[in-house]
Nucleic acid binder design. Structure first.
Lengths: 232, 232
DNA sequence: TCTAGCTATTTCCTATAGGATCTACGAACA
DNA sequence: TGTTCGTAGATCCTATAGGAAATAGCTAGA
């Protein structure tokens, strides 16, 4: 039996280290592990009921993304929250990378990616709308995850995997969500995302690049001062 | 006893995983581990005479840098050489990031960094000069390492650690050195680096940014076509 | 000749255990 | 009172072992 090109793909096999990674990431985002907190390998292993070996690997991966810090023979600590300066630097980098990704993606956007983007945008609107009362955290986390997915879809569509990786590895939404969690600093940007999608669908590279840049610069201008206040 | 600010710093503690990482990196650069080759965890452990645990961690770190690929429950493989397209994409990203780093570094360059840059430049000239016969590989590796150090010093001097990390993590010199090793594709760029340093020392941000961009664009124009030929 | 299924081997993955290192605490001394 | 030293505890680090999964090779049957 031979198959032609098929569209279904088998999801990659997972090992325990992948689950530990996800669990730690979630704990970090919701600050059940506080910024700056110590992360003992054995402690995490006991808490998650696994052995230290996969925990070490998950922490190694998190360290490569800057979400935890390692000091050899000392241990790991959760990364501190971004201060105003750090947030500003994060945006500086995003503004360097993501408008270019949007430009490149314009010519290469296929139907599948277009569909993803539209769905992610709908998801953002939903999360923002159902913003009733104390469900806020949960909803904003949903929103942040859709937001991240939207940006990552564009990054991948750029066709430059190194560029996509650089963008993804910044873990922007983790940092932004942690700030929201701590200080209530948030940002509803569904409309700005819609503008990006419109430009992409129109196949207008200049407009797509500009829309992305505008979106990020607006966010920066909105968020950085608030992070500054929060520090007081 | 209290000390004021001291300039000496204790080197960070090292664990076995750090040595394994260095060893693997070296083996990858010199293609003692060939591009695309399988990397069995137990095999590496036996070869380096350590246990599999630190090997796993070192491989996790290498994977985060894109130098090896992991497939869960299958194993690791060494990353393939960059083809012409990949090389082009690497330069695209560098041209996005590094000119900005040079611009930012202009205002913040201190005496220590200036000294480092000058030393690295001298090192490059030395390695290029002692280019006698079959010592070529070794010399070019020295050259590539000085080249990398030069760029990383500027990246750090930018004052934006995220930007510095993004530049460093590309591991440009590893990819370039592997290409040289395989195809003899090399590049003597000491003079272009001198131009960057001159602009930095003059405190001219525009010139520094431009010199860095020119350097990278020249390299791209020189190297990408050759990678294309090598593939034939 | 080709396919299906079984077996054996290799390799990854996870858990466990012990040695090495670091931190914290408290006693002894100046 | 303040400093030094030594001990105890916790934690990291490395090695080892066994279970689980994947690959390769072989046999049997169509």
């Amino acid at each position: 039996m031979t198959l032609g090109a098929v569209s279904v793909t088998i999801p990659p096999r997972r090992a325990l280290v992948d689950d530990v990674y996800d669990a730690l990431l979630s704990l970090l985002m919701d600050q059940e592990i506080a910024p700056g907190a110590r992360l003992s390998i054995d402690g995490v292993a006991r808490q998650l009921d696994v052995s230290p070996t996969p925990v070490r690997e998950a922490l190694t991966r998190l360290e490569a993304e800057g979400l935890v810090l390692r000091e050899a023979r000392k241990g790991y600590t959760a990364a501190e929250l971004l201060d105003a300066e750090g947030l500003d630097q994060l945006y500086e980098l995003r503004i360097l990378l993501e408008p270019r990704a949007a430009r490149l993606a314009t010519a290469r956007l296929d139907a599948a990616a277009r569909g993803e983007l539209a769905a992610q945008l709908r998801g953002m609107r939903q999360a923002a709308a159902s913003d009733g009362a104390e469900a806020g955290f949960r909803n904003y986390r949903d929103f942040a995850e859709r937001d991240a997915a939207f940006h990552h879809t564009i990054a991948r569509a750029s066709g430059n995997p190194l560029l996509a990786d650089a963008i993804t590895r910044l873990r922007s939404h983790v940092h932004l969500y942690r700030l929201y969690f701590q200080h209530g600093i948030a940002d509803d940007t569904a409309d700005e995302h819609a503008a990006i999608l419109t430009a992409l669908e129109a196949g207008d590279a200049d407009a797509a690049e500009l829309a992305m840049r505008t979106h990020l610069e607006t966010s920066r201008a909105r968020l950085v001062p608030r992070a500054d206040e929060a520090a007081e």
